[in-house]
Computed example of a mutant assay.
Amino acid sequence: MAIIRSHLTGHPYKPRREWPDQAHVQWGGHGLVFGEGKSYNTAFFEAFPRDGTAGFIRGEGATIADAEDNAFAQWEKFFECKSHGGHQWGRSRRRAVGDKPYTNGGCFCRRCGAFETVMQPIVELGGWKKPISDMELDAISLGSTWNMNSQKVPEKFQKRLFLRARVFGVNIPKPPSFDEYEEFAGTRKREMRALYREYVSSCERAVAQYLKDKPEQESAVIEGVGTERLFSCLVASRLKKLKES
């Protein structure tokens, strides 16, 4: 039996298809999709099968039921591929010249198009020398280097972000570690939130000072449309406010 995401347990819609056991599912009647040159609203149904067919499946349609039918048809296609010869994974969506491969371990089946994380990430040699980006500065200013927020930000990313900040002269304080410091033992949630707010404020000041000291760090807005440009605009706006603060 499929596992319904907790925020939908009381929703009037119930999955109608026989999804594999332990598959996590979620849905919505109105999902905004950004595309090249246009955006649209649609009902959607998303599944995370966990049976080797695919890591993530999304179906769309006029209704949630239509979206589930669309998603389930994809699962059947992926299951058929897995059961007859198995998936043939590759890092790029299409074997075409110029098709940029995924480097984070995500792969596409070259037979059926299923997507799942099955390979190890490709480590970029010399990546530490790459100039710190607007996205990184924004994340630093939001306190993403402290593991109090570990459910939302992976610990590996937090550590890398902290080290890159220090390497490039963003003088953020070392994030507290409740495992290392006995004085935090028994700290109440209210006190922890206060500590976290204080840490975020320190990070904001450090990023603001860095931007003032580095006038050449101009926030560039990505050309085009879609979510990437939207996030780019938001980041540029936040960094501009910090720089002017």
Rank of each mutant, 00 (worst) to 15 (best):
G10W: 07
G10S: 14
G10Y: 09
H11R: 07
H11F: 04
H11D: 13
P12K: 05
P12D: 07
P12E: 10
P12M: 09
P12A: 07
P12V: 09
P12W: 06
P12Y: 04
P12C: 09
P12I: 06
Y13P: 00
Y13N: 02
Y13Q: 03
Y13W: 12
Y13K: 02
K14P: 02
K14F: 05
K14R: 12
K14L: 09
K14I: 10
K14H: 08
P15A: 02
P15R: 00
R16S: 05
R16L: 07
R16T: 08
R16G: 05
R17C: 11
R17L: 12
R17I: 07
R17S: 10
R17K: 14
R17H: 11
E18R: 13
E18Y: 07
E18G: 08
E18H: 11
W19G: 00
W19H: 00
P20Q: 03
P20Y: 01
P20T: 02
D21Q: 14
D21N: 14
D21P: 02
D21H: 12
Q22I: 15
Q22L: 15
A23S: 11
A23T: 12
H24K: 14
H24E: 14
H24P: 04
H24G: 12
H24D: 12
V25P: 00
V25R: 00
V25K: 00
Q26M: 11
Q26F: 08
Q26K: 11
Q26R: 12
Q26I: 11
W27H: 01
W27G: 00
W27F: 08
W27L: 01
W27V: 00
G28K: 02
G28H: 03
G28I: 02
G28D: 04
G28Q: 03
G29Q: 04
G29T: 04
G29P: 01
G29M: 03
G29E: 05
H30I: 09
H30P: 02
H30T: 07
H30D: 04
H30G: 04
G31V: 09
G31C: 07
G31Y: 03
G31H: 05
G31A: 09
L32E: 09
L32V: 12
L32A: 11
L32G: 06
V33Q: 07
V33S: 04
V33C: 08
V33A: 05
F34V: 06
F34H: 13
F34Y: 13
F34N: 11
F34A: 12
G35Q: 05
G35R: 07
G35K: 07
G35I: 03
G35F: 03
E36W: 08
G37D: 07
G37H: 06
G37W: 04
G37P: 02
K38W: 06
K38N: 07
K38Q: 09
K38Y: 05
K38D: 06
K38A: 10
K38P: 03
K38M: 10
S39F: 13
S39M: 15
S39G: 14
S39W: 13
Y40I: 13
Y40A: 13
Y40G: 09
N41T: 15
N41I: 15
N41K: 15
N41S: 15
N41P: 08
N41E: 15
T42Q: 06
T42M: 04
T42D: 03
T42R: 06
